[in-house]
Computed example of a mutant assay.
Amino acid sequence: MSRDILVVGGAGYIGSHMVRMLADAGHRVTVFDNLCRGHRDAVGDARFIEGDIRSSGDLQRGFASGRFDVVMHFAAFAYVGESTQQPALYYDNNVTGSLRLLEAMREAGVNRLVFSSTCATYGDPVELPITESHPQRPVNPYGATKMMVEHALRDYGRAYGFDSIALRYFNAAGCDPQGRVGERHFPETHLIPLALEEALRVSTGGDPASTGLSIYGNDFDTVDGTCVRDYIHVDDLCRAHLLAADRLLSGACRGAETYNLGNGRGFSVLEVIAAVRRVTGVDIRYRMGPRRVGDPGGLVGSAVSAGEVLGWQPRIPGIDEMVATAWRWMLANPTRGAHVGNGVASMPAP
């Protein structure tokens, strides 16, 4: 059945992929985004409202434009390092903005929300794989702000009959297999696009020895000494949001629910770089630096609950296929995907 879905933050990386998947499924999609970090062209033909979640007036204007069955919330700042340097920015947007969104939904009589959360709420792992019952002890403001919104959703569920599903995911990766949208962060901090940008630079005549690709730490207790992370293809993330919306619309969810999304296995930084070499055919190089304070050696999640309740399983679990979808998009959009890479992200920042 076709539904009216409001995608808040729908011009960003994951949000824009969600918009395409919802449209493919026959839903009527409206995007609400302030474009401070998103791209207008990424939403395609979807109805678009430019607005900021921190503005009650913008939100009221957005909800006055139509009746929405479900809201999907992707409008967060998500750079771990930036959150430690500018915590006020993160608390203002991620917490205050989310609370204003919830109030605007209440005023409009909309009580179903799919919330894009993160494994950064867990902090340093005490056991692997990480399940939903793992202690939440975030070690940076980004993770703390997401956890605060999760707490608010539980309170809104108890007090106002507000139904929500928060999806805590690990490292988003890859691009639309059809090549319609891709990953465009400025600056880019994610490992796969940074490694692919290095492959693109070398393949177009760049000196391999002048690499800007850095690895932070090779002395972790992992298979090869580098950080291990759980990567999940962006389409698999979006499909989980679609299943979560279906659960909300069916009435099966009452109050606030939370599920991890991950592959259940991890890939080290060096394993990802090896995959980039295989996919691109370019022998990229890197610089090795010391580990960064606060970087855990391994982050791998359990998505058993998402499988049991939502019926979700990743369809693109292989690292080579994830890299290949990102490489195809980068080759087709070299100027859109070109950044100056100066590091490798080791903390999850979906």
Rank of each mutant, 00 (worst) to 15 (best):
M1S: 13
L6Y: 05
G10F: 11
G10N: 06
Y13R: 09
G15T: 15
V19M: 12
M21R: 14
G26H: 05
C36N: 14
H39L: 08
H39T: 11
V43E: 12
G51P: 04
S55R: 06
D58M: 02
R67E: 06
R67A: 10
R67T: 11
F68K: 08
V70I: 12
F77Y: 12
E82V: 05
T84Q: 12
T84G: 01
T84R: 13
L89V: 07
T96L: 15
L101G: 01
E103G: 00
A104H: 07
E107L: 00
G109N: 04
F115D: 00
C119S: 08
C119D: 05
P125S: 14
H134M: 03
A144M: 14
K146V: 08
D155M: 12
G157F: 11
Y160H: 14
Y160E: 13
Y160A: 09
A166W: 05
R168D: 03
A173P: 03
D176I: 07
P177A: 03
Q178K: 10
V181D: 02
G182A: 07
H185L: 03
P187Y: 04
P187F: 02
E188F: 00
H190D: 08
P193A: 05
P193H: 05
A195H: 11
E198L: 08
R201M: 07
S203A: 08
S203D: 11
G205F: 10
P208L: 02
S210D: 15
S210M: 10
G217P: 08
G217R: 15
G217S: 14
F220H: 15
D221M: 04
G225H: 07
V228T: 14
V228W: 07
D235N: 07
D236C: 05
D236L: 04
R247W: 11
R247L: 09
L249A: 05
S250V: 09
R254V: 13
A256R: 02
T258D: 02
G266Y: 06
G266M: 03
F267W: 13
F267H: 15
V269Y: 03
V269G: 04
A274N: 14
V276L: 05
V276F: 10
V282T: 15
D283G: 12
Y286T: 09
R292M: 12
G294I: 03
L299I: 06
V300W: 07
G301D: 12
V304I: 11
S305Q: 14
L310E: 14
G311V: 13
P314C: 03
W329H: 06
P334S: 05
G337D: 02
A338N: 08
V344S: 05
A345I: 01
A345P: 01
A345K: 11
